[in-house]
Amino acid sequence: MDWVGGTESMVAGAAVSFVFFAALAVALRRRLGWVTAAASCGFFWWLTVIALVTLVPLAGIDLAVPAESRSETCSLDYGGPAPDGFWILSGGQRLLNTALFVPAGALLVVAAARWRIGWVAAPLGLIWLGLYSLAIELLQLELARIDRACDVTDLVDNVTGALLGFSVGLILTALLRPWRRR
């Protein structure tokens, strides 16, 4: 399984999963309306992208934490030893962690707004996104082979991104009105 890892695997996984979720959105379009179908499938696609970016081994990337030097516990040092970041965003790893969860928060709100129960489902989904981030951090702690580290700063940044996305989703919902079929 040494052939899996690095940005190539992340991009390939994102592309394959995009094709799947785009086809699913097209299939659901008549039943849910195009806005809700696209937002719902986009939300689950983005959760897949988050998993790929955070759990695929970092072969050949500067952010790798070798298994031999990894901590046995999750780092509680807020703002701790986060590396400078990824080539995608120059603002550092913290900005990347925050930006990674913004689309999930926005798509969650737009997808939930179609139904009356959405005012309950969306906040519960936001809590679920926080738990998803926690699960990722715990997996990074347990799976030494993927060269990742568990860090409370990542969790805070991810939840901050989900909250920002939630706010963006409220604005998008007012503009797109997913409860109306078009």
Rank of each mutant, 00 (worst) to 15 (best):
L134M: 03
R180D: 12
A38E: 07
D147T: 13
S90F: 13
L32S: 04
L170H: 06
V49D: 03
T173Q: 00
A112W: 00
R70A: 10
A39Y: 00
S75D: 14
L129W: 02
W179Y: 11
L126F: 08
T173C: 02
S133R: 00
R29I: 01
R181A: 05
L170R: 06
P66R: 08
D147V: 10
T160K: 10
V53W: 05
M1R: 05
N97L: 06
R145W: 15
L89V: 14
F101Y: 08
R70T: 12
R30Y: 03
V11I: 09
A113I: 00
D77K: 10
P57W: 03
F101S: 01
A82R: 12
L129K: 00
V159A: 00
L124K: 04
R180H: 08
G42W: 01
R70W: 09
L108M: 11
T48K: 05
W34D: 02
D84F: 14
A144H: 08
V4N: 04
D2A: 12
L55M: 11
S71C: 15
A27I: 11
G130Q: 10
L100Q: 10
F166G: 00
G6W: 07
S17V: 02
E142A: 13
A149Y: 06
C150W: 02
G85S: 10
E137P: 01
L100F: 07
L175H: 10
I127R: 14
P66N: 07
V168Y: 02
F21I: 01
Q93A: 09
G80D: 05
F86A: 11
A149Q: 06
A14T: 04
T73M: 13
C150Q: 04
W179V: 04
E137H: 06
L155T: 09
L58Q: 07
L63W: 09
F44H: 07
I61F: 13
F21Q: 00
L129M: 07
D157V: 12
R145L: 15
A122R: 05
T153F: 03
W34R: 01
A67Y: 10
L107N: 01
P83T: 13
W45E: 01
L76H: 13
A162Q: 05
L170K: 06
D147I: 09
W87K: 13
L52F: 11
W45M: 04
R145I: 14
G6C: 09
E68V: 13
P83Q: 14
S9G: 12
V56L: 06
V65Y: 04
A22L: 07
L108H: 01
A162G: 11
R182Y: 14
R116K: 12
P66I: 02
F20D: 04
A38P: 08
R182P: 09
V53T: 10
S71R: 15
G91C: 08
P83R: 14
T54E: 12
L76C: 13
G161S: 04
W45D: 04
